[in-house]
Design a protein around this nucleic acid. Sequence first.
DNA 1: ATGTGCATGTAACTGGTTACATGATTCG
DNA 2: CGAATCATGTAACCAGTTACATGCACAT
Lengths: 194, 194
Amino acid sequence: MASGAFTLRHCILGLLAQKPMSGYDIRRVMEKLGWLIGSPSYGSLYPALHALYDEGLVTVDVLAQAGKPDRKLYWPTEAGRRSLQDWVNQSGPADVTLKAFVMHLLLADSFSADGLIAYLLQRREQILAQQVALEASWSEADEQVGWGKSLALDYGRALASAELNWLDHVLNSLRYPLSGEESQRAKAVSPDLV
Amino acid sequence: MASGAFTLRHCILGLLAQKPMSGYDIRRVMEKLGWLIGSPSYGSLYPALHALYDEGLVTVDVLAQAGKPDRKLYWPTEAGRRSLQDWVNQSGPADVTLKAFVMHLLLADSFSADGLIAYLLQRREQILAQQVALEASWSEADEQVGWGKSLALDYGRALASAELNWLDHVLNSLRYPLSGEESQRAKAVSPDLV
DNA sequence: ATGTGCATGTAACTGGTTACATGATTCG
DNA sequence: CGAATCATGTAACCAGTTACATGCACAT
């Protein structure tokens, strides 16, 4: 329950772990990251923040401001950091949505290098599986693929191969060399679409 | 309100427009498309299907089967097709999430060619804006960007540029359908479903 | 006998959005 | 003088998940 899926709680905790912020700040940051992480409404943000506080995962410091409403700066307690670390460590392939993945990247500083590499490899495995599944869906001569379906599948293929390329590139720069066979597969894809 | 965001309703309606299916079928199809569209639980699928039926947007035909439970084949009514067409036509840049975008691609057959091109151009504009926003976020020398943040931003950049490439390629092939293969696909655009 | 696939569904819950309410300050 | 930005929050609602309940057929 506390683990499992990636929710606003984790997101907030993750951002606060990098730098103390107010609810308002959190939203601004998420807005700037835009579609990568998606910004929540205050209607969910503030309640989530209060809940984290009630559970002792974050502390607050209230800064009175002239003319403006009080600015409540939140940051994780030790328990909060532990809980975040738990999430980072135990998150399996099941919950690797785009948001969760991006949050893992953002928290890269708090990984051990090995942990990050393991996580990226896991992600790589997953994308590879999806690519294979799409390819299978394509050549499924169940009946001829409609134009729309072929468009959608091709789009998926393009995204998947782009991500694989990126992953390989990053893994490489982390000096984790892949076997020749595997890395070639990912590199070969880019130029042929539709 | 009934329009706006992309929900299960639209998704179901869209899939049924391509081919009559049971709730079970719908789920299998969505599962196969995997992360592109995401498969819902039956706990949301069946109720949504019933709601569509109650509103007269889909009809059902019950096929009794030996040994197995009845198979309820659903497909859109005229009203359903109209409602779907409305969604396709009026969906603005606001709701262009990945799911919604993929659904538009899947329904490409039911667009006029011009409509599809307009939609893709809209998407292109949006991705371009996101790319710019990320770039801005990067060079924001507010303080030096942490490793995690730079990783995440770079990931976003990679995805955005991959999508732009794909969009350009598709747009190009839509405007200059030359090869035999592609002109065949171009023909497939015309039969609309309304 | 045990599990997997087919096929339907409901009830309780959760995680979010939308719309509302407040109020000072600064910019055009 | 009105709009945007800073800054907080609540209440009603909605869309989805999880867990449960049913039941037959076929393969291991």
